[in-house]
Write a protein that binds this DNA or RNA. Structure first.
Length: 617
DNA sequence: CTGGGGAGGGGGCCC
DNA sequence: CGGGCCCCCTCCCCA
């Protein structure tokens, strides 16, 4: 910036070269950013490490690591390899990125630095990696030994990364002053030549590790799991580079080494998910460079297949845990701009930052209105944000983990004191998940039901009570809901239905915290977060989150319009548009009915002429 | 500018 | 658990 300013001044004819520098500018800037991070303010990316979420700023991450730079370019949600980094370590790393200071944990120093080194190498945080190496050297044990140690119980790919770490040691030969230069590096947003070189060569390692990661992260499967899907690599972090359009914007990705890499050469073979084998790692990058639309499409196909299954695995993994992520900053923002506007910047459709209106609305309805126990924050905020509040709950009897929130350490610690684990229904905080779980057992099923009669009186249900087919239904559907008289053919469906009467919903989205009555709905919802659109139109390439949408869409190409308005004969490709159309026509229908009614009562004369009601009274 | 249609997307719910 | 349908909201386009 300084040199730019100088150039500018020279161009402007100014002979004086004025150089003024605030001594603490960079430091203050980082301080502010770190504070903003703590509040979630302007955070535009979420990093998922195991089941912990970390909010951060893309710019900061991108300035600190080439790897992050490539990830945040396209994604707002980044899944990190749990094999390479755990939440505790990542928290240290994130603190380091934002402060330039490394705070070690209670772990034995060497162990912690080994973990940090592994993570730093994985994330291409060369400064940090060098710092760790230096520390380890000081501990009088050669790093080579450590690197070998890392390989124990790990895949060969992990070991390859360790090797790469050694190479990266070339950078940051001057570890001294690293801390001091940290903020300057961030400010410059510039990396050394060495680093660029190393990054590009290391990229493939990261990708391969990502693949390995998802195997472990996804449901605790064996690291050597060899079924097709498992072998494919499901880490979300690598999906971005596979997106051709977005990738093309990143000039830094187009290093010669990538173009000329063996992985590039293997790209054309990557026309099926299975082609993402052990060696075909570079496919995403090479595809990004490819001008062949077929290749791009196929790569995308692979990507979707991968991320889709990866998501499922991730969900299973998450659901095993008794810790759920607290609603994120998204909930803190009350009235954002239009969701579409926000979404435009999210190429993968990942919903971060302010929730979409529909989600907010749903939250308001599901939580603000229904939650039997106001969330503590809501209470403390004087209910100002009641629309935003609300949290998870638990499945009665089953005692799922939906109620429980794992609070990111150091973030929003005030409301619950030092107790990081919070029971959402009653707002009590607990120092450990075990204690929280024990407490949750004390919540009874009654807590989850609304006892008052008539509370459930939704329109649909009211209509059902007057359903003339009720007698028939009683015969063919022996399983009756005790609340609304609906009946079902099998007990499973009945149980599924009964959950709709619960105040609380058993299945939380671990990204936004929204709760669902059915797991399937939740996983479908997760797709929207993750931008997963597995169903592609063969005609135009448009992708959809649901098969049904694709089916609907295909009518656009076939010209089929199966839905016809009985009033005007108008035809529609989608039923919902017919319904929407009928609403507009409803005035006519309604009038017709009224007129007919009056006709019968008053024996007047009414005529319907086309869509127009002409009434002679 | 407005209203209507087309279409994308999300949630609820049942099978 | 996925498929399918319904309902809703929303945006875009066009007359």
């Amino acid at each position: 910036c300084k040199s730019q300013e100088t150039n500018y001044m020279e161009k402007q004819g100014s002979c004086k070269k004025v150089e003024m520098e605030l001594p603490n500018h960079a430091k203050q800037l980082l301080l502010q950013l770190n504070q903003q991070r703590a509040k979630g303010f302007l955070c535009d990316v979420i990093i998922v490490v195991e089941n912990a979420l970390f909010r951060a700023h893309k710019n900061i991450l991108a300035a600190s690591s080439m790897y992050f730079k490539s990830l945040v370019l396209h994604d707002n949600l980044i899944n990190l390899d749990t094999d390479m980094v755990n939440p505790t370590v990542f928290r240290q790393i994130l603190d380091f990125i934002y402060t330039g200071k490394l705070l070690t944990t209670d772990q034995p120093g060497e162990q912690n630095f080994n973990a940090l080194l592994t993570a730093a190498s994985y994330l291409q945080l060369h400064d940090l990696a060098a710092l760790c190496r230096k520390k380890l050297k000081r501990s009088s044990k050669s790093f080579a030994g450590k690197a070998g140690g890392l390989g124990v119980g790990r895949s060969a790919r992990s070991q390859r990364l360790s090797t790469a770490s050694v190479i990266q040691a070339r950078y940051s030969g001057s570890n001294e002053g690293m801390k001091g230069s940290h903020s300057k590096e961030l400010s410059k947003g510039k990396l050394s030549d060495d680093e660029v070189f190393i990054s590009s060569s290391n990229q493939e390692n990261c990708h391969s590790l990502s693949r390995g990661a998802s195997k472990n992260g996804g449901g605790g499967g064996s690291a050597n799991g060899s079924t097709g899907d498992q072998e494919l690599g499901l880490d979300l972090s690598k999906k971005s580079p596979s997106l051709p359009v977005a990738a093309s914007h990143d000039d830094t990705q187009h290093s010669e080494s990538q173009h000329g890499s063996p992985q590039s050469a293997s790209a054309p073979a990557a026309n099926s998910a299975s082609s993402f084998d052990e060696s075909g790692v570079g496919a995403p990058h090479s595809m990004a460079d490819s001008s062949d639309p077929m290749e791009m499409d196929l790569s995308e196909e692979c990507h979707h297949a991968l991320t889709e299954s990866g998501q499922r695995k991730g969900l299973r993994h998450s659901s095993r845990k008794k810790e759920w992520i607290k609603k994120d900053s998204a909930f803190d923002r009350k009235e954002g701009s239009k969701d579409r506007d926000e979404g435009e910047g999210l190429p993968n459709g990942i919903l971060l930052g302010p929730l979409s209106k529909s989600v907010e609305r749903s939250l308001a309805g599901a939580y603000g209105a229904d939650l039997p126990y106001p969330c503590k924050e809501e209470v403390e905020n004087g209910k100002e944000n009641s629309d935003d509040s609300g949290q998870s709950e638990s499945e009665s009897g089953g005692h799922t983990s939906a109620n429980y929130v794992y609070r990111q350490e150091g973030f929003e610690p005030v409301a619950y004191g030092d107790n990081l684990y919070v029971c959402i229904p009653c707002g009590k905080g607990f120092p450990s998940s075990e204690q929280l779980n024990a407490h949750v057992e004390t919540h009874t099923e009654e807590d989850l039901y609304i006892k008052e009669e008539g509370t459930y009186g939704s329109k649909d249900e009211a209509e059902d009570l007057s359903n003339p087919n009720q007698a028939y239904a009683a015969e063919s559907r022996p399983f009756k809901c005790s609340v609304c008289e609906k009946s079902y053919k099998d007990p499973a469906t009945l149980r599924q239905h009964e959950k709709t009467h619960w105040l609380t919903r058993p299945f939380p989205c671990n990204i936004c915290g929204k709760m669902f009555t059915q797991r399937g709905t939740m996983t479908r919802h997760m797709r929207s977060h993750l931008g997963l659109k597995p169903f592609a139109c063969e005609e135009c390439g448009m992708r959809f989150t649901r098969q049904y949408r694709l089916t609907e869409h295909m009518r656009v190409h076939s010209g089929e319009k199966p839905y016809e308005c009985q009033l005007c004969g108008g035809k529609f490709t989608q039923q919902r548009n017919l319904i929407s159309h009928l609403r507009i026509e409803q005035g006519v229908v309604f009038t017709f009915l009224v007129v007919s009614y009056e006709y019968s009562l008053l024996r007047g004369t009414c005529f319907i002429k086309g869509k127009t009601i002409v009434t002679f009274m």
